[in-house]
Amino acid sequence: MQQAATPTADAAPPSGLPLRRGQSSGALGDAIFAAACRGAGVFVLLLLGAIILELFLGGLQAFRAFGPGFVTSTEWDPVQEVFGAGVSIYGTLITAVLALVFAVPLAFGVAFYLTELAPAWLKRPVGTAVELLAAVPSIIYGMWGFFLIVPFMSQVVQPFVIDTLGELPLLGDLFAGPPFGTGIFTAALILAIMVLPFIAATMRDVFETVPPVYKESAYGLGCTQWEVVRNVVLPYTRVSVVGGIMLGLGRALGETMAVTFVIGNANRISASLFGPGNTIASLVALEFGESELGSLKLSALLGLGFILFVISFIVLAASRLLLRQRLKG
């Protein structure tokens, strides 16, 4: 690329020969540069393909050993060399969905505030604060959760909930058990805090794509702010809002460090939401160091990675399809 740069037509006079020389070197430079750009694009394609392939090949030994039952089996016994993905898949899905249940209403509130309610001078600082929340590394959320939220949960929230809701006949099982502080519920809470800024920022961005004329017409008819958002903004942005929520779900599914600190790391499915559990990511992060090269356990962990990749791929692809229509126009 640099070599081609020397004899170019920087100041080529419009006479025959130098111009032609300039053109040909320009053409060479063009060809090289275009090939480099296209090559880099193809490289990214291959990269994703390689990630899928490597994870699958890594997990092949476990897939062969346990068959399709690997996905549903809830056993995880390193001593007997029996591994199943059921518990961690359940933990991954339940924490991510629960996190969305907490995060979506909050994110909607923040987005509504930022687009309709906030005075102009507050919009940017608050918006920046929300975006900074998204930039905090996940390990910081993990530490914060471990040292602040876990004690708070075990000393204040969980004893209270176990004594009240836990006594109910049917619902009670969901909140029963000893107040460890760690567990599925706390992990979902931390995840919710982590994905909140992502969903809120996406919602704000799509809310702002609503043409002002629509909103002004509704206001002109005497609608309140809530009615404008409910009847004009939300119907207009429905698809993209779902896309934003899916994006948050994609983040929540694969989050590792924050969950690892607070999930409790137990390989069983407990009926109580306060019980300890596992997600795919936390299991891989915690158990990886104890698995030998070439062992069935390592293969099982890589297989888990492959399953996580498939799940996140589906969710992220759906999110992108839903979001593209609005944001990229």
Binding site: L48, L55, G250, G254, T256, L308, F309, S312, L316
Partner: peptide, 8 residues
Amino acid sequence: LLSAPSIL
């Protein structure tokens, strides 16, 4: 890739 779990 932008949103894929970094652990993978």
